[in-house]
Nucleic acid binder design. Structure first.
Lengths: 279, 279
DNA sequence: TTGCTCCTCACGTCACGTGAGGTGGC
DNA sequence: TTGCTCCTCACGTCACGTGAGGTGGC
């Protein structure tokens, strides 16, 4: 019953390569049942075959080894299944993004010639009072982070009596955030001067500084907003208008609020030199 | 029109990080329009923004950089689209495998307790004449390779007059193939002694040696055949019957011949010691 | 006894990310 | 002029794969 197998035999039973088995031993994911102390020969038990098969499955699904370890060391079935379900959910979200990317790529290659460029509007914006959530954000976490942050801001506005909001949902993205794909981001909602958010949480009060902006409306999903950045940024660069400072986005129609993502509307606001428009 | 941008500015227009842009320069994927010879400063043209956006899309789809280079250097639209379509087809095939793996994992975790183990049959097999295709095969290429090889063998058999086939489609998998995930594999079709395949192609004549085998029928898709390997291999190991030599598979009902993959039938044949069954 | 299986480093792969240490441009 | 942006190495990451060189087990 408790037969021991060489690493080569175990490889044939599990369909894991010998190199992979040694690696899983090294990282503590799948330890042989026994190791000969003099020769170092690994001995695996037939009872380890089912665990190896599960590991093979989840690794085929690209679950990181640290998570695989959690799965197989899970104290109970619930904890184990939760880890797997979470990974499957992440895979599904990834798949959705993939579909969007494929569609977007097709559109770019097919309609490559004459994509209608949206008009640019120049805007002189005064300083505004806002409630805000500020954080260092990693590029790939931006979507969920923004959703959470705006959710907290909406709760703060909603809890207050009367109409306090003075503008659409918005965010400031630092130059560092674009260049390093990690850096400061500020989600904010403009509010009346006298508004005071209640304590607790990450919600604070800020003054968004006055700026000159070149503004272009992005029509469509967030995943394609680089197109508008490219068009607007090129427009600004070719007219030598560029100024330092964070880029703003105004979420006029959020993707989550419409059925068709093509109906989403985002203003992309590029900082430009003072007086740049009057030249 | 031909505005030049610093790497930081280009990063904001393209949503590629500065590190990524430098990497793409290093590997020759996206060279800046100009490089200052004294400072080494990279200067990108606004005209490069659309190419950068395409690169971003295909990289998001995990296309390898070497292929991306082919795409953007493609001499014409047809060559470019062909490379992309091929990659999308590979992604789709991968997605199919992912679905199968998820289903298989679920089945393993839910029905974990009492999976009905198929019976083991001992079989003394004489040497048989066969037409064969032999090759060194990489693990991940096995499915397509086997399909191609059996296709060639079917063509050789079909071209001959009369009934020459004497057994089902089969293959020999070397120990090296399992342990290194690359190694010799032989696809073969048993034929009558007097049969001679016509020259040309990879099809040759072999004598598959006589062996003692422990045999278990695998019911279901190829992707789950490791389960049967585990059950059969454990059975053999626990009775100390194991012998050297390649593992055989007999394709009684091929997955490609049935609508429901659960109807596929594959005999897995494990070499055992002579007289092992009479002990 | 032979050769085959197993062992342990050390390094390579892929597509970048992370610092360290230093120079040029507005 | 200051500090900020840019530069180039060199090394790290992740999950293994690829040899090199050597020893133990049937």
């Amino acid at each position: 019953m408790a037969a021991l197998l060489t690493i080569g035999e175990f490889s044939r039973l599990t369909h894991l390569s010998v190199k992979t088995l040694r690696h899983y031993d090294d990282v503590g994911l799948l330890r042989p049942a026994d190791v000969d102390p003099s020769s170092g020969y690994r001995r695996y038990a037939t009872a380890q075959v089912p665990i190896a098969h599960v590991i093979r499955r989840v690794r085929d699904l690209d679950m990181p080894i640290d998570e695989v370890r959690e799965v197989i060391e899970a104290p109970d079935v619930e904890a184990r299944d939760r880890a797997i379900v979470e990974h499957l959910a992440r895979m599904e979200a990834q798949l959705d993004r993939t579909q969007t990317t494929v569609a977007s790529l097709r559109a770019m290659l097919e309609g490559g010639g004459g994509d209608p460029v949206a008009p640019v509007e120049f805007r002189s914006v005064p300083a505004v009072r806002a409630i805000a959530v500020e954080d260092r954000v990693d590029w790939d976490d931006t979507g969920p982070w923004l959703g959470d942050a705006l959710g907290e801001l909406h709760a703060a506005v909603g809890a207050a009596p009367g109409a306090v909001r003075t503008g659409p949902d918005a965010a400031l993205y630092s130059e560092e955030f674009f260049e390093l794909h990690t850096g400061p981001v500020t989600a904010y909602v403009p509010v009346a001067e006298e508004f005071r958010p209640r304590g607790g949480g990450r919600v604070g009060l800020i003054d968004v500084p006055a700026v000159e902006l070149a503004v272009m409306v992005h029509r469509g999903p967030f995943a394609e907003i680089d197109q508008t950045y490219g068009a607007l940024g090129s427009f600004v660069a070719e007219r030598v208008l560029a100024a330092d400072g964070p880029i703003r986005e105004h979420y006029l129609v959020a993707e989550s609020d419409v059925d068709d993502p093509d109906e989403a509307r985002t203003e992309v606001c590029w900082p430009i030199r003072r007086g740049g428009t009057t030249r």
